Simulated assay, not measured.
Amino acid sequence: MTQLKKEPLKFAYWVPNVSGGLVISSIEQRTSWDIDYNRKLAQIAEASGFDYALSQIRFTAGYGADNQHESVSFSHALLAATEKLRVIAAVLPGPWTPALLAKQIATISQLTNGRVDINVVSGWFRGEFAAIGEPWLDHDERYRRSEEFIRAVRGIWSEDNFNLRGDFYRFTDYTMRPKPLGDLPQVFQGGSSRAARDMASRVSDWYFTNGNTPEGLKAQVDDIRTKEKQFGKPWRTRIGVNAFGIVRSSEKEAQELLAEIIDKAIPDAVKGFHHEVQNAGNSSPEREGNWAKSTFQDLVQYNDGFRSNLIGTPEQVAERVIGLKRAGADLILLGFLHFQEEVAYFGKHVIPLIRELEAEEERTLAAAE
C-alpha cells in the first residue's frame, strides 16, 4: 500500500434527486427526492463536514426511479440553500451541447460564488437514448465525444475567441461572458473501461469508480498514473470511489441491516439492471465495464457500493476509509438508506475518527523524516 497523501480526504454524497433511494430493495428508506428534503439534506451535509454533493442524471424511469428531477437546475437549488458545499451536476453529452452547458454552469458559478462542478456521463443505457430520440454511438465513440465535450467546455470557460474543429463539435471565434467565477469548475467523470480510464488520464480533473476493495482500487489508480505519464498530462487526476455506508453501534447490527437489504431486494429489477449493464460492458472492445465482475448482491446497490465495505461500527468504517485512501482515493462518495439521519451520523461519529487517523499518520511520517 502507498503512504497516505497529506491532503485530507474529501467526502461527497449522492443527491437523491430521483425517487427510489440508492438500493434496489423494498426495505424502508427514509429518503425523499423532493426539494424540501434535499435542501435540508444539503444543509445537514455542509454542517457535517461533507465537501460535495453529486446530483444524478436520469431521463427515464427504471429500477425504482419513477420520478427524476433534472440535475443542473436541481444542483442550483441546493447551492442556493448552502454557503460552502460544492455541488456536482451530472450531464450527458448529446442532450447537452457544450455551448449550453458552459453557459448554464458559468451563470450558476457567478450566482453561487464558484461552487458548481460537473460530472460528464458518457451513457450506458441504450434504451434511454432511444426513448428521448438521441443517436446511440458505439462504446468508444461515446467516450471520444465526451472527451471532445470536456475540451470544448473547458475552452469556452477559459478562452476568448475559442475555436474547435472536432469530430462532434465546432466553434468559430466564440467568446462567452461572463466566465465562471474564480477557478474553472472541476470536471468529474466515471467508468471502468479502457476508454474511460484513458479519457480520465487525458482531460478530467476527477475520476469516479464504482465501489471496490483497496486492492482493486489501487490497480485502477496505478493504471491511471501510468497513462497520465504516457499522455503527458500536466496535473494529477484525483480519484473518487463509491461506497454505501451502513454505520451502526455494533458490527452485528450493521451486518444484519445489510442482510435485510439483500433479502428484500427486488429480483426482477436487479436482474433487469444486470442485463442492461452487461450489455453496456459487452459493447466495450475489452468487453468489460463498470459492472463486469458484479454479483447479484453487488447490484442491489447499483454502483457496487457494498464492495467498499463501509459497513460496521464507526471505528471499523474509519479504518476502512483510511485503507481506501492508502490505495489512492482522494474522495469517498457515499450513499445511505436514510440520508438526513445518516449523513449527520457519519459527520459526527466517523469523519472525526478519520481526521484523527490522518493526523496520526502525518505525525508518524514526520517523525520518520
Rank of each mutant, 00 (worst) to 15 (best):
A265G: 06
K264L: 14
G123M: 05
D167C: 06
S193V: 03
D66C: 02
K40W: 04
N279P: 04
Q186N: 01
N303C: 00
A80I: 05
I150T: 11
W136C: 06
F129I: 00
T209L: 05
L181E: 09
A327L: 05
P180A: 07
S75A: 15
Q68P: 00
P8E: 11
A61M: 09
K218F: 06
E342G: 06
T313K: 08
Q340D: 03
Y174W: 13
L164W: 08
I105G: 13
M1F: 10
A196G: 04
G289V: 01
Q104S: 15
G49A: 10
S25D: 06
A269D: 08
L100A: 12
S249Y: 08
Q43L: 11
R202G: 07
R154K: 15
L357P: 10
R144Y: 00
F273I: 02
G328H: 08
L299M: 13
E228L: 13
M176H: 04
T97A: 14
K233N: 05
V277I: 15
L333R: 05
F346H: 02
V300C: 03
Y143I: 05
L100Q: 12
L310M: 02
T2S: 13
R170T: 11
S73K: 04
S146V: 02
R355E: 05
V72E: 10
L337N: 12
N303T: 10
E369N: 09
R197Y: 11
F50V: 09
D183Q: 11
V72Y: 14
A196P: 01
T97Y: 12
K348R: 14
R177F: 14
I246M: 05
D167N: 14
A80S: 15
E148L: 13
G155V: 07
V300R: 04
E7Q: 14
E342D: 09
D167E: 15
A366F: 05
H139R: 01
F162D: 02
T31P: 03
N212H: 00
S26I: 06
L331H: 07
E251Y: 09
S249M: 09
E251H: 12
Y52Q: 07
R115N: 11
V120G: 10
S201L: 01
G245I: 06
K218I: 01
F244W: 01
F74S: 02
E315N: 03
L353M: 13
H275N: 09
E148P: 12
A90F: 10
L353K: 15
A106R: 07
Y143W: 05
Y143L: 00
